[in-house]
């Protein structure tokens, strides 16, 4: 019950957070920005449009978007969004994201355009370099909270209260959120300029419903990573039982917390410039350092 609600809320709320970040960025530039429901309008518009496929492409192209969306929806089972319930092996969650990325990168190569290849190549490079960081962060979480299940991690934080180590881990988790959702300084979601494109280049050949699915999957991924960050940093408000009040409160709390993180992400993006691709490993080393430090503390404590 809670698990299904988690999925439903994650799917429904994701475009809102996506647009809200754009809104915050617009405010930072003293523009008005898109209306808050723009994400939903775009999704509906794309669903109505026809899908244009390249004559060079194969079934990989046709399956990539459905696979991406399906994987993200399954991955939503693993994260406490509204409430705590369900299984949440953190490594399986990570590998589901990798599965989605694998097909997205293949689809980028499928049409045979240079942009797609460039995007796939860069995306797989970034994902390879961020992977040890992610695993170390997860290992640090498992060390501190004593479990590999994300739902149980949230429960542990609820039971034991905030810890200093978790704040350090949260910084690394925030960097992972930025990297995985293709945001400045790793990638620039706004631009369609070949120098800076990573994620956008990969899905350049997608259109119609496939594009809608891809964008929704991307938005859900962002929501899930936000959910992960929140269940470590501030899990208060999560429903632990299936009463109506708890669930409604859980949904409300999630929206508020999500908007807070989105606001912060928007500010973070506005305050930075896109960094050179080959300078990115430095940023990742920072995240690696934070979580390794946490483990050091735990080991020698």
């Amino acid at each position: 019950m809670i698990a299904l609600l988690n999925i439903l809320v994650a799917v429904l709320i994701s475009p809102l957070f996506m647009t809200f970040i754009k809104k915050v960025k617009a405010w930072a530039q003293r523009r008005q920005g898109p209306p808050l429901l723009q994400g939903y309008y775009t999704f509906m518009k794309l669903l109505k449009k026809e899908t244009v496929l390249s004559t060079n492409s194969s079934w990989i192209m046709r399956w990539a978007a459905p696979i991406n969306l399906a994987v993200m929806i399954i991955a939503a089972l693993f994260i406490p969004i509204v409430g705590i319930g369900g299984s949440g092996n953190i490594l399986l969650f990570l590998y589901l994201l990798a599965l989605a990325k694998f097909f997205m990168a293949l689809a980028g190569l499928d049409a045979g355009s240079t942009f797609g290849g460039m995007g796939s190549s860069r995306e797989m490079t970034i994902s390879a370099v961020i992977e040890p960081v992610t695993v170390i962060v997860f290992a640090a979480l498992a060390y501190v909270l004593g479990t590999m299940d994300i739902h149980r991690m949230a429960l542990a934080v609820l039971a034991n209260g905030p810890q200093a180590a978790l704040v350090l881990i949260s910084m690394s988790l925030f960097i992972i959120l930025i990297v995985e959702t293709a945001r400045v300084p790793v990638d620039n979601p706004e631009t369609h300029l070949e120098l800076t494109m990573v994620h956008e280049a990969m899905i350049l050949e997608q259109s119609g419903k496939n594009l809608a699915f891809m964008e929704l999957a991307h938005a859900i991924k962002q929501t899930l990573l936000m959910g992960l960050l929140m269940s470590v940093l501030f899990p208060y408000g999560l429903a632990t039982e299936t009463t109506l009040v708890a669930l409604v409160f859980g949904i409300g709390a999630f929206i508020v917390k999500g908007l807070c993180i989105s606001f912060f992400v928007g500010l973070f993006e506005s305050s930075m410039a896109k960094s050179r691709l080959f300078l990115l490993p430095n940023l990742f080393m920072l995240a690696y350092f934070f979580s390794f430090l946490t483990i050091l503390f735990e080991v020698f404590a």
């Binding site: 026809e50 899908t51 244009v52 496929l53 390249s54 004559t55 399956w63 050949e205 119609g208 496939n210």
Partner: peptide
């Protein structure tokens, strides 16, 4: 499910 949903209304065209 999503594959069947996305199947309708497609057109083939050369890569840009």
């Amino acid at each position: 499910f999503f594959f069947l949903l996305a199947r309708a209304n497609t057109r083939y065209c050369e890569t840009w």
